[in-house]
Design a protein around this nucleic acid. Sequence first.
RNA 1: GGGGCGAUGGCGGAAUUGGUAGACGCGUUGGUCUUAGGAACCAAUAUUUUCGGAUGUGAAGGUUCGAGUCCUUUUCGCCCUACCA
Length: 809
Amino acid sequence: MERYNFKIIEEKWQEYWIKKKTFATKIDKNKKKFYCLEMFPYPSGKIHMGHVRNYTIGDVLARYKSLEGYNVLHPMGWDSFGMPAENAARQNKLSPKDWTESNILNMKMQLKRLGLSIDWDREISTCSPDYYKHQQEFFLELYDKGLVYRKEQYVNWDPIDQTVLANEQVIDGKGWRSGAVVERRKLNQWFFNITKFSGELLQGLEGLDQWPNKVKVMQRNWIGKSFGCEVEFKIENSKNIGSISCFTTRPDTLFGMSFLAVSVDHPLSKFYENDEKFKEFKKQCSTTGTTEESIANAEKIGFKTDLIAINPLDNNLKVPVYFANFVLMEYGLGAVFGCPAHDQRDLDFALKYKLKVTTVVSPELDKKNFKVNNKAYTGPGYICNSSFLNGLKCPDDSIIKTIEYLEKEKLGTKKINFRLKDWGVSRQRYWGCPIPIMYDDSGKAHKVPKDMLPVELPNIDRLEPTGNPLDKEVEWKTINFKGKKYLRETDTLDTFVDSSWYFLRFCSPLKKDYGFDFKEAKYWMPVDQYIGGVEHAILHLLYSRFFMQAISYKNNNIDLKEPFKGLFTQGMVCHETYKDLKNNWISPDEIIIKDGKKVLKKDNSIEVKVGSIESMSKSKKNTIDPEKIIDSYGADSVRLFILSDSPPEKDVQWSEEGIISSFKFLQKLWSLHLKILDEIKKKHKKDSGKNLLKFTHKFIKKITVNLNNFSYNVIVANLHEMYSFLSKETENQYTKETLEENYKKILITILPIIPHFSSECLNLLGTNVKVKWPKYDGSIVEEDFVNIVIQINGKKKRPYYNQEKYRRK
RNA sequence: GGGGCGAUGGCGGAAUUGGUAGACGCGUUGGUCUUAGGAACCAAUAUUUUCGGAUGUGAAGGUUCGAGUCCUUUUCGCCCUACCA
């Protein structure tokens, strides 16, 4: 029997789609639009299985929506600025541009081989001046709106990558890429005023009902809104310090205050700069590691000052002021009042320094003498030992009433505090978007005039091993403008800026005078379904939301606030790991399985230890090259398998058995197809029943429902059911018309999953390629019989299935 | 410490709304064909059984005619986040 030749068939359809521009899109006001977007890749050289999964999920949706009659925008581009290009350039002594461009060519070819329904006419690349020109315009637009500023600030400095990192890029005190322990340095930096929209970004999450809850929770926590007030504490001292302000969410516990603690970075520290003991203390604080463990176990330590703070609610209550290692300058005002009875940190501190512990919250109203020992009480209750606050219900009433009182007496102000910090976007790197700023003799910053954009990167063929490459480009750096000499800004923008608006660029990728066309964006935006990894839950997804806010801020042409209506985060692709006896990682290519059990190394037949299943990574050598897999099994098999084993939002395990089984299944579908073609030729006179019709409609319903729920793994199961049903049922006699009509509908419903195969089969049935998603008839789907199960005492006793007397009326 | 998610055969996982638990795949076992099979096809595959059944969705309770699904408590696992005032 003729085998299914995926090589010929897949290539044929891929060429056809490109030649006919099947996926090219234009505005069509008569059609509902659907913008389907997957996170665009960094052009590292080759696609990996993560890409395959991401883009297959997106492609299934795009193809389905298109068959349903939507005008689908499904573009692709390249997040092509970034460190790897610079590193590769240094290693291989070539230019980042050449390296990046050749990677793009290769990966584009690889993506095409997956049979993705992408409108390649809209391809963009962030490292192209055509793209980053508009980014520079946006930078200046935001500058004019007061959303960009420059200031000297302590920054996260990555000593390996030799660049500044955003807070979001520091994980466990280490650089997210290099893994180096991040240092603190004071530098002049450009910032985006993301905190201006803290409230909006938080509020906006409420409306995103098609986002995973997980991501919304993460963003909510990152923005970190807390409600409380600022309280001013008068200071008794010899140093002419008037007062210290603290932010607190628990002003109602003020009567339980027994010390006041400030950060070693607090402005107050300048009074102690010459104090040797303080210096030593400060050093001790900085040596407390940044690892999770060291923070969790770090002892609370303090440095007692000669200052005395006065409780604003009762001037007779006076407490000592400490510098303390657990108070951070980065949060709130860098100063806290300590209430040991109701905060564990404060209690630890108080016990160590033998400070008073006054209980001011009691779990029950009449429970007198409630005492805190070595565990702070943080639960609800009633205020006690607090003069006029006594008896207030805590925390609800007590906090509000106390703030009201403090405001009335002008002792404090109600305040909402956010944890979110402004976004530092300066990077001391070459391969990024130049910041369109120039400095005059006095160092004052000026905008580069719009008609001088883009500020293009100079070509550097060979990068120096360290330092900021642009800083050394004297010729490029120096410019004359209206007879005056200026020096260019030599920092480039964080590459997260590039990806913060690319979804807008896709709406009108060729537009010359602005980053996007308002009319096009109004039609296409927001992205209806965005698909990508959860690792971007806060970084990219928050920045993009900010950018949308920033662009529509003070702009009458666009009022969209949220760029992504729906978000789907897919799981990772995993694989077994292997190690030799010396604990070196071994790649799946290097092993062979003997007798179905023993795992041996191919070249020397030495036994290999099979390790846990881990997400594919180069370091563990458990990656599988998609290109090789496509060579051996074809794109449809790969698509089928990557969708089959697990729900798309969960991790999936790649296995040789799995891909082989998908490949075999496709072969079986092909022989079924040939069998059906035979049956059609037989020209039976009469239908043998309604089974086929009923199955087809049920099948369409199932697939439709499962597509809408992203239950793609179940769809693959449905395909198997379809195979086993049709291989039996087609042995019954059906007329040419019935068989063709139903089979065609089935083929259309499987087109999003295995597009090459399905297109080929439809074509062999003489079907025009322009097909529509079939509708199912609810009355046909309904079962003819009612299953009745007899229960006695709630236990299933006798089921009566499909009996004529229970026919549905 | 705070938060989120989850727990169903040997494994990955099915099961709109409470209504025949274990679809589908992998693996395993048996068979057919074959020089051979790691190919193809057929069959079996939750546990237990005196072959009538009985028991089964991490554990314990509850609601219900009926619970994998709803409620309460609890155990375990994964992920995120962290001295956040």
